[in-house]
Design a binder for these strands. Structure first.
Lengths: 340, 340
DNA sequence: TTATTTAGCGCAATCGCTTGCCAATAGGTT
DNA sequence: AACCTATTGGCAAGCGATTGCGCTAAATAA
């Protein structure tokens, strides 16, 4: 059907192997021959067949990107397109292709991953989430398949290369900001607790309270699905307390949106009645009312770095496990208020 | 390295070809042999190598998904994860894999597409946007490569299969809603005019005005980048008119967010001072203040249908070009107000 | 009993490319 | 002139599947 390496070989009057080496820019081929072969390729409109190549070298030039199962509304979080953009950017320069997972639920996701691994569809993968007892991560480790995770692995931390923010100190810093503003009744609203990112952010919050000598109130920490129910439950719960919080640390910009929305329904104004700090610095967070004070975790950069790490790892098989912390930066906007 | 079809054959004491036929569940093989072979596969932990298979049958079981170049902030629009989710869902059931584009700019995108096509990486693709004079679409047509577009092609409409909403009547209907509410000064804010979706929505708006005998005011229609600058320019422009609009039709929920945000800066309240209607019904649109009256275009379904169409097309080579209109439904919420 | 079918499988070519190894030519050394 | 050593490039064996065709043995027909 299509034009193959043989056709080119014939036209350039060389052997197929020579053509192959020209493609690989093998130094064994003289410049003049290369020129001739390349000319033939152009004229014939030759393009190598990746499948054949992959079969021969036993590698695809592809990396798999595993997102949380799409049943979770989490996927609607613009976080994902944004990391994807970062990953895609390095994938493009290095000529890797991107495979994305399609699983709707956890089981399907797992199937998908197996297909990728066993079927030799990808050379390595990037996990875009990290949760407790993740069977997928376990599987990858057991199969000794190259992967990197965006976020902190729930275990085997030292043997897995991952890129993450220092969520603990970010969280600590931002809740201290609240404390500096005179707040003492600070709530924490986080997503499902089996995401390690949630745990880290909670830890930072707790650390701040402790270090500043502020009493921890159990009722002040609530967990809710990231998007689901728009944080309604959380808000209801918090503002029916006899002493409602005057500030809150929310673990994700999208949640914050939901919360602010609920707040209004309850007649609570932000930042007048309650200050809010958040995480991620999605594009959205600056066009909401009020614009959110949030920690910029540099999503795009997370994507870039994870892809780079993975590719390095693929290149030299026994690259040591790395940990890469991308710095965060707090964006101070208008969702917090100094208490008088 | 890995276990191959030959290993299985040896173990089951049959020929490799038999194993292959067992995999394909070919009726030529007796049930008992199949059983035996399958047992061997299990015991050896056999998994077919897709590359080899693809090479042999000259097809990948993969479909490419082309998003707009990621430089455009448009990619941050949750529209994309959502279509992707739809596509992924049918991809999963049909055991197709998903390749996504990674190009950062138009040129890179084009390269990427060429790689996919020439390299036999995917069997077909889905374009997630449609714009004027799109070289990629032209290329695909010229190469006679199977593809479907989400949205309406800018030309050759009858020969391309695509899935879309009836954006014209949706837009007409929703601006009539505004008119019914007594508005006569209605603005239109759209994204870049070379997206055909923008044009369609504009057309519907104009149709409504005409049919209702409302005068068209040139200053009332402004175009802005989808996300960029948060619609600031649009708002500035409109509200410095001597007769500012009392309502607006905005072509995208994300833009609406930006606009509402700007509005506040200008001291204009929605819906008190100005009514807003929007498009897409992103998850976000119901957790904003006010919740948006928007047309639900059923993004997920767009994804599902486009994937289905593509796969049908791949199965039977000369499937005729189809057009699939997925119905829309207006969600009436609180961003519009009846004029008294 | 012999001739024909019909299952049920195996042979071997093929898909398009890579790569270890060998061959040939050329230039350089004694 | 005989011998070496680079350079260049070709041969052919894979990589792991699929598939047209042919073969054998059992089943059915004559």
């Amino acid at each position: 059907m299509a034009v193959t390496i043989k056709d080119v070989a014939k036209k350039a009057d060389v052997a197929p192997s020579t053509v192959s080496r020209v493609i690989a820019d093998n130094p064994r081929i003289s410049a003049t021959t290369k020129k001739r072969v390349r000319k033939a390729m152009k004229e014939l409109g030759y393009h190598p067949n990746v499948n054949a190549r992959n079969l021969a070298v036993r590698s695809t030039q592809a990396i798999g990107v595993i997102m949380p199962s799409s049943a979770e509304t989490a996927l609607q979080n613009p976080f994902f397109p944004e990391v994807l953009r970062g990953i895609g950017s390095v994938a493009h320069e290095t000529e890797y292709s991107l495979y994305v997972s399609t699983g709707g639920n956890d089981e399907q996701l797992f199937e998908e991953v197996k297909r990728m691994v066993y079927g030799n569809r990808v050379d390595g993968m990037i996990l875009l989430y990290s949760r407790d007892n993740d069977p997928i991560m376990d599987f990858l480790i057991q199969e000794n398949f190259p992967f990197v995770v965006v976020g902190k692995p729930y275990q085997n931390e030292s043997q897995i290369t991952y890129v993450d923010n220092d969520n603990i100190s970010a969280s600590k810093e931002i809740t201290k900001h609240l404390i500096d503003f005179g707040h003492e009744h600070i709530a924490f609203i986080g997503g499902t607790t089996d995401l390690v990112v949630t745990k880290d952010r909670l830890t930072g919050y707790l650390d701040a309270l402790r270090e500043e000598g502020i009493e921890y109130v159990d009722d002040y920490v609530v967990h809710d699905e990231f998007l689901r129910s728009s944080g309604r439950k959380a808000v209801e719960q918090l503002f029916s307390l006899e002493k409602p919080p005057t500030a809150m640390v929310i673990a994700d910009d999208m949640m914050s949106l939901g919360v602010i929305n609920m707040l209004e329904e309850f007649g609570v104004d932000c930042p007048e009645d309650v200050s809010i700090t958040s995480f991620n610095n999605l594009y959205l967070s600056e066009i909401t009312r009020p614009p959110l004070t949030t920690v910029d975790i540099q999503i795009y950069k997370l994507g870039i770095q994870s892809a780079k790490c993975l590719i390095e790892q693929l290149k030299s098989k026994d690259e040591p496990a790395k940990r890469l912390i991308v710095p965060y930066a707090i964006k101070y906007r208008h969702s917090t208020r100094k208490l008088d």
